Amino acid sequence: MAKRYYPLDANTLFGEDVTMTATGNVQKGGVDAVFKIGKGRQDMSLVVDISAYDATTGDEGYTFLLQGSNAEDFSDDIENLAALEIGPAAVRTGGARTSPIGRYGIPVSNDLIDEFTYVRLRLIAAGTTPSITFTAWLSERP
């Protein structure tokens, strides 16, 4: 995996050392971490540092979705702006290799069909005993 530097701005930190065991939105302080990035095209990187994940039974899979919306509460116009699949090769649709632990940087823009004002990070967890620990943020593109 390439070792790139992605500046961390606390204002775009979805969560640090978060452990999730079920599908849901990444939260800070018990509420969904939603960032207002404004109108106009914003090019950035979604950075996800995976420190651990369970693949014990071989059927656990994890998909991170960076979602955009024009409603702060995501009640309307939700679009998936980026996706990252993590897990063993047997459950990944994206390829025939098991995902290593480490840093993933995904180029992303809020300009997809529309220029979305708000973003959030959602995890889709699947399998017998899903559990994943990560830190995630939006960064300037290197």
Score class of each variant (00 low, 15 high):
Leu81Ser: 03
Asp77Arg: 14
Phe74Gln: 03
Thr93Met: 04
Ile106Glu: 08
Asn80Leu: 01
Ile101Ala: 03
Arg97His: 13
Leu81Arg: 03
Ile101Arg: 07
Ile106Phe: 10
Ile106Gln: 10
Val119Pro: 12
Gly94Phe: 09
Glu115Asp: 15
Pro100Leu: 08
Arg97Pro: 07
Ile86Cys: 00
Asp77Gly: 13
Asp111His: 09
Leu81Pro: 03
Leu81Gly: 09
Ala83Ile: 07
Gly102Trp: 05
Ser109Lys: 11
Leu121Phe: 10
Tyr118Pro: 05
Ser99Gln: 06
Leu81Lys: 06
Thr93His: 02
Pro100Tyr: 03
Asp73Ser: 08
Glu85Ala: 04
Ser109Gln: 10
Ala90Leu: 10
Ser109Gly: 13
Ala96Asn: 10
Asn110Tyr: 12
Ser109Cys: 12
Tyr104Pro: 01
Ile101Gly: 05
Glu115Leu: 12
Leu84Asp: 01
Asp73Gly: 04
Phe116Lys: 15
Ile101Gln: 06
Thr98Trp: 14
Arg92Asn: 08
Glu115Cys: 15
Glu115Tyr: 14
Ile86Leu: 01
Ala90Cys: 02
Ser99Thr: 08
Ile113Leu: 12
Ala82Met: 09
Ser109Val: 06
Val108Leu: 11
Pro100Arg: 02
Glu79Pro: 07
Gly94Val: 13
Tyr104Arg: 01
Leu84Ala: 04
Asp76Gly: 09
Tyr118Cys: 07
Thr117Ser: 15
Glu79Asp: 11
Ala89His: 04
Gly87Asn: 02
Tyr118Arg: 03
Asp77Trp: 11
Leu121Ser: 08
Gly95Pro: 13
Asp111Arg: 02
Ser75Pro: 07
Ile86Gln: 00
Asp76Phe: 11
Asp73His: 06
Leu84Lys: 05
Gly87Cys: 08
Tyr104Lys: 02
Asp76Lys: 11
Thr98Arg: 10
Thr117Pro: 13
Leu81Ile: 06
Ser99Phe: 02
Asp111Gly: 04
Gly94Trp: 14
Ser75Arg: 00
Phe116Arg: 15
Ala90Asp: 06
Asp111Met: 08
Arg103Thr: 07
Arg103Val: 03
Leu81Trp: 04
Ala90Pro: 03
Gly95Met: 12
Ile106Lys: 14
Pro88Ala: 06
Asp77Met: 12
Arg120Asp: 10
Thr98Ile: 14
Leu112Glu: 12
Ile86Tyr: 00
Glu115Gly: 14
Thr117Val: 14
Gly87Thr: 03
Ile78Lys: 09
Glu85Gln: 07
Phe74Tyr: 08
Gly94Gln: 12
Gly87Ala: 03
Pro100Val: 08
Asn80Arg: 01
Gly102Phe: 05
Ile106Trp: 09
Ala89Trp: 04
